[in-house]
């Protein structure tokens, strides 16, 4: 079973994402911000990361840049999941090493399609 780290400061979003991803057979680890997410990655790198952009302490963009510099940090497939839905943000995310990008609001169909796109399903 693959592990997905869900990083979002909203407990509601984390709950929705967990429900969707568990139905797609993922084991879920949660983090509320970039710092917690980095701690989780230092303990064990997940196969997938569903990542919000705007969060307190450390945002998703900064987390991604640090993750990609960690040993083995190039391995997890990172799918941004954010309300930032303009070309400039998407381009920045891809440049920083994101594999896919979900624009909120999302549903199971979109998450499934994006995870398929990057070979996680």
């Amino acid at each position: 079973m693959k592990t997905c780290l869900v990083v979002d400061d909203s407990s509601v979003i984390r709950k929705v994402a967990r429900r969707i991803l568990e139905s797609l057979d993922f084991k879920i680890v949660e983090a509320e911000d970039g710092e917690q997410a980095l701690d989780a990655c230092r303990q064990q790198l997940p196969e997938a990361i569903l990542l919000d952009w705007n969060m307190p302490k450390m945002d998703g963009y900064e987390f991604l840049r640090m993750l990609r510099r960690m040993p083995g940090g190039d391995k997890p497939k990172v799918v941004f999941c954010t309300t930032e839905n303009d070309v400039a943000h998407i381009a920045r995310a891809l440049h920083a090493g994101a594999n896919e990008y979900i624009m909120k609001p999302f549903d199971k169909e979109i998450v499934e399609a994006k995870f398929q796109e990057v070979g996680l399903i």
């Binding site: 070309v87 381009a91 624009m103 399609a113």
Partner: peptide, 20 residues
């Protein structure tokens, strides 16, 4: 719609071939 462009369309192709 935002929903339609997220069904099957890789994000790289969205920003390459679409304008918001």
């Amino acid at each position: 719609t935002q929903f339609e462009v997220q069904r099957g369309l890789p994000i790289q192709l969205l920003i390459k071939y679409f304008t918001k």
